[in-house]
Design a protein around this nucleic acid. Structure first.
Lengths: 339, 339
DNA sequence: CTGAAAGCGCTTACAG
DNA sequence: CTGAAAGCGCTTACAG
């Protein structure tokens, strides 16, 4: 691979001048610029990014940090990763994947290697040692999700209040008044204080209160069996329920079949609205689920934009809270009186 | 951040000697080693990986290249990514994500930046320009999947022959003789020659032939509607079908409901076996799907191991073809005679 | 076992 | 507008 030195020799200039045209950092006369560009083309020159990184103290590499324990990132989490990678790539940054423990120790070690300019942190907990590590090492970062008290911190997140409100608007406009919320049971103690779950439940309670509805919240395991069990519990506890808001992608289909086993049809008898879900997921079900689509793709991009605004001084994104958008499927319908 | 120079000064040695103990590359007397280690601990020294990369001409960074167009990587594809990241991280490598076009141009550009030591290529096509780019630039690489004629090339892949054979063994042992195969319709022209689909279909034909069964193959879109349509077509074309092998995660639930709409129950009337599927996916269905579980997690690790064996001279993995493993769910059962 | 020195391929004041 | 030179923080022959 040709180096700057070789380009400089061939063009009859110094390597500094080559650097100026490659980076467009200083004015260079048209004639010299042309000679240099010709030399670069002939030699097929590509600037070595490692040398550049060392000399400039900027690697143009970002890290995406996520919990190592979590082998299965949900489809929403995955969309963070792929969209962040694309956004980074468009700005000529690279994105490395850092599966790290939640205690922040491994993250600190990696930071101190000097490989990355900044970090996007996923799956943020309400009280998160990784955020402390980020702050105490002075590393530029952006969170997808947020801690308990995130005021002043750089984050992007789903707007759970707006999302739940829209969900309840939709269901109320269809005449539903007995609405339940099904969330997910944390797979392990470590994820108990996962912000998304806590905020969504709080949003549901708040929204119900403002509407004069009586909230009921159940949680269940993330699979069909969990969903079926929740459906059974719900029919037991609140037989008059006519609509369910679920934030548990993997259990949604199980709720449908659990209701069906008790002779309750979706959407004829009970409406089901799946929140923070991908369209793919919704389209896999029959009936196709009415969903509030997760803004995962936008959040990944937004997080990178927020991070790069700290690094390169670009414009920081103005909105940092994105609601899930309602996509009408076949699983919600006007309420019917039930006994 | 402390540098080697500072450590050397504090320990009263040269930076070369510090390097020897950090990398364990040359014998150092116990006394000196101890002084150096103490100095490192006091200063909180961490070797700068960028400087090391430039000096050693090894970055210890690998790239995972995948099609930029494909916004949604399936759950199998995602397991490649996360498991490769973990495997790399365990060997103290970093993994960057490279969404690139299928024509190989962008890949070549990125390679020439000098950032990575090697590349894992995903979603390999039967005729793949990216592989040509890898070979012509002389870049160490490993494919997950393979081209039409992969003899001698470094790849790992699903063993479709063994997988389909096991699937048919399972169904035949339950008494099924009328077995259909449903695969996925390529989402775009660009993915027409995707190896997995072609090889799986060929494996099905071959296995049927050896068993004296008459193969029927349908393809459908990757959602519930596609699955329902395929179910309808199947009942039309082969009403005596008693078992379906499907390689189309997103359409599997649609097949179940499509059959149900014609009064055909799974598994009582027709057995359904979903091939190259994640357990999560299978567990989302009711009945829980009998699946041949995708070895995605192993393939991601294996690919990294294969790549690192070229880079660091470790042992190359002996097996490079992994079958999907049968996980009995509730969607397969003994054949019943149907009219 | 240890050190002095060159070099990895760039960037960036500084000088002219 | 252009160049000589120092320096980014390491590794690695080479010498002793």
């Amino acid at each position: 691979m040709a180096t700057m030195r070789e380009v400089a020799e061939r063009a009859g200039v110094s390597i500094a001048t080559v650097s100026f045209v490659v980076n467009n950092t200083k004015p260079v006369s048209p004639a010299t610029r042309e000679r240099i560009e010709a030399a670069m083309a002939e030699l097929g020159f590509r600037r070595n990014v490692v040398a550049r990184a060392l000399a400039s103290r900027r690697t143009r590499i970002l890290a995406m940090a996520y919990p190592a324990l979590q082998h299965r990132l949900g489809s929403t989490a995955m969309s963070f990763v792929t969209s962040a990678a694309s956004a980074a790539s468009e700005r000529e940054y690279h994105l490395v994947l850092w599966p790290v423990d939640n205690d922040g120790v491994e993250l600190t070690e990696l930071i101190r290697q000097g490989l990355v300019d900044g970090i996007v942190l996923m799956e943020v907990l309400l009280d998160d040692a990784r955020v402390d590590a980020l702050i105490s090492t002075g590393t530029p970062y952006a969170m997808i999700g947020r801690t308990a008290d995130p005021a002043g911190l750089p984050y992007v997140d789903i707007d759970f209040d707006a999302t739940v409100d829209t969900a309840l608007d939709h269901l109320q406009s269809l005449g539903h008044r007995e609405i339940a919320f099904v969330s997910e049971r944390p797979p392990s103690e470590e994820f108990r204080a996962y912000g998304a779950k806590v905020r969504a439940e709080a949003a549901f309670r708040g929204s119900c209160e403002r509407r004069g509805l009586e909230p009921i919240i159940l949680e269940c395991a993330q699979n069909a069996a969990g969903g079926r069990k929740a459906a059974g519990e719900l029919l037991q506890a609140r037989p008059r329920t006519t609509a369910v808001v679920i934030m548990n992608e993997h259990a949604a289909f199980g709720v449908v079949s659990g209701l069906a086993r008790s002779g309750v049809r979706v959407p004829e008898d009970v409406s089901l609205l799946s929140v923070s879900t991908s369209s793919d997921m919704g389209a896999m079900a029959d009936p196709v689920l009415t969903i509030m689509r997760s803004p995962g793709i936008h959040l990944g991009r937004l997080a990178v934009q927020l991070l790069l605004s700290q690094l390169d001084g670009g414009e920081a994104p103005s909105t940092r809270l994105l609601p899930c958008e309602l996509h009408q499927g076949e699983s919600t319908a006007p309420a019917r009186v039930r006994g």
